[in-house]
Structures are given as structure tokens and as C-alpha cells.
Simulated assay, not measured.
Amino acid sequence: MNILVTGGAGFIGRWVVDRLLKDGHHVWVLDDLSNGRIENLEDLRNHKNFIDFVNGDIKDMQILNLLFINNFDICYHLAASINVQDSIDNPRMTFNNDVIGTFNILEQCKSNNVKIVFMSTCMVYERAWGEVGINESNEVKPASPYAGSKLAAENMVLSYFYAYDLPATVIRPFNTYGPYQKTGGEGGVVAIFLKNKLAGKTLQIYGDGNQTRDLLYVEDCARFVVETGYSNKVNGEIVNAGLGEDISINELAKLIVNDNNRIQHIDHIHPQSEIPKLLCDYSKAKTLLNWEPNFTLEEGIKKTEKWIKTTKLL
């Protein structure tokens, strides 16, 4: 197939591109490199089926008009402003990228009959209660403009499925980590903790550290993303993906450094946007896609630490 990946130079996008190439598809990538890095694609761009990288913005209609001439079968739409703290500080930018940008992609998909897989987020959910995981019918709570923008875009994507019969799927991966994730301020907690561990620095935890996360290894996430595009069973559906286990940030820090003297609690920058408990129920993905994670948290952390030790992409 001919496939477009927006945000394909990003952390998860890079792995989606890798998976699609391995599956034998022709791949185009659109990314403005505001968050992604061209270096993420360095080992993929020489692949015979990597057709083109376009450095461009999903808000630029001229670029989209030219790009969609290529008769795509699927558009994996991952391009977005993804930082929760940035969305609180600058909600307009997040809204423009995540809602207006998604609308532009939807219009192109509608005009060219291209299936869209829209990457949303677990951050739209309120919280998990007890040991029961969050499923797709759980309450949502847009506690940040990032979550609010993703919910708005989700509704637009599903409206095109109902109003125009456009093949469309909304996916909500839980907290994804692994190689190629940034290890700085915009990175995920696993990458930041591992980088600080290897640098001999203290691991800093926002708040009391009792908040939990369901941590999904990136190769499992990319396989989920790609397979939602292949299946008609999830058209018009919202689908979760996660490990199905949660861990507190305190426990995660101890798992990574095993030294309480190297763990420090600091004040939360935006405590109002914190979700106390994230635990995924991925039974819908298992039923409809036969998908489930292959990597344990311990395996994923080892693979990520090994990558950080050997890479220059920090």
C-alpha cells in the first residue's frame, strides 16, 4: 500500500514507519521537526520503500494538496503538539496543531478516500479506580488543553466516519516509552529516569510519586498502531492499548536506580493536570485485532537503557 505517516520523525512515528517498511509498504513521512528529529529516520531513509520525507506543517494546505496526490491507502496521523505543560502555557498552539491540523488532514482523507488512523492519548481519561483498568467507555476528563484538543479532534474524526462513511479509527495508547524517545524535558518518565541514572544524577519525582502509569513498550505500541490501519473491524471505533499493569512513579524510580538516596520529590508544575491512576484495559484491542503486548516492563526498560547507553540522540 501507499501510506502517509504524519509526525513520522517523532518517537512513536519512527517505529510506525519502521514497521510499515518491514511489512512491505511504500511510506511517505510528513513532519515539521518541531518535536520529531530527522535523525530518527536515519537508518530507514535508505530503504527502497521509503519514498519521501516532507519537512512541512499539517496546517499548510499547499503542502497537503501536493502530498495527497500520491493516492494513499492509509494515513496514520500522529503529528501533534504533545506536551501537557506546554498546552497549559500556550493553549492556542496546541489547539491549532491538534484540532485545526487534524481537520486539514481529515479534509484531505475525505477528498481522496484515504483511511485515517488518529493517534489520541490516554490523557483524555479521568482515572482508573481500584484494580479495574480503563476501557474505552470510561469517563473522560480533559484536565489540560492537550487532552481537550485531542478529544475535540477525536470527535471530528468520528464525525467523518458517520457523516461521510470515511474509514477512520481513534486510538488511545497509554504511556509509551522506548528507544528514540527524548531524554530531556519533553521526554517520557522512563527515558528521563534512565538518562539521569546513567549520568549519576538524582531522579526527580513530581508530587508524592503515588501517581501510577501503564507503561507500554514502543515496539508493542507501533505494532498496535499499524494493525489498526490494516483492519476494517476497528473503523468507527476508539481503541486502547497498554500493558495492562500500572506502576507508581515511586516504584518505577526504585526499579530503575534501587537507591532511595538518588530519588527526590519536587513540587508539581501543573498538579491540576495530573491523573492519579492510569491502568489500561486493552481487551477491545485483543478481541478486534488479536493484539496484546509482547514485552514486559522489565524487558522494555533493559532495551531502552541499552539504547540510551549507545546513542548520540539525547
Rank of each mutant, 00 (worst) to 15 (best):
N2E: 13
D165C: 09
N290C: 10
T202V: 13
N260G: 05
P271T: 04
S81R: 10
I74V: 15
L289T: 04
M123E: 11
V190H: 05
I51P: 00
C221M: 07
F53N: 09
G13M: 08
H26T: 08
G185P: 06
H77Q: 10
L203S: 03
T228Y: 01
D60P: 07
I38Q: 13
F174P: 00
L314R: 15
K195Q: 12
L66D: 14
L255V: 06
I266L: 12
D52H: 15
I105K: 06
P145V: 02
V140M: 07
P167Q: 07
F72Q: 05
C122G: 04
G229T: 04
C221K: 00
E292P: 01
E251P: 01
E42I: 05
E139N: 13
D86Q: 14
G229Q: 07
K284H: 09
T287M: 13
I205T: 03
N83V: 12
G200H: 10
A128E: 08
C75M: 01
A80F: 04
T183S: 14
I105Y: 04
E305N: 13
I269T: 14
I63N: 09
N294V: 07
A147M: 03
I266N: 07
V17T: 11
I308G: 04
V257R: 05
F50N: 12
C221E: 04
T296H: 12
T176E: 06
C280D: 02
L203T: 00
R45Q: 10
D165A: 13
N49G: 05
S87R: 03
L314H: 14
N96K: 12
A152V: 02
D57W: 03
S137G: 11
L289A: 06
E126K: 14
I256T: 02
F224N: 05
G36V: 04
V140Q: 11
V99C: 11
T228F: 05
Q181L: 01
K110S: 08
V17Q: 01
Q272Y: 11
V225N: 00
D23L: 12
I256Y: 02
W307K: 07
R19G: 00
K110H: 14
G200F: 10
E299N: 07
A147S: 13
K277P: 05
S149P: 09
V218I: 14
Y230H: 10
I269P: 00
V225C: 02
L41Y: 04
N71C: 07
R37F: 11
R37S: 15
V234I: 10
H26Q: 12
Q204S: 12
G24H: 09
A143M: 03
L243Y: 02
C75Q: 02
N240W: 00
S248G: 06
N261S: 15
D246Q: 04
G236T: 05
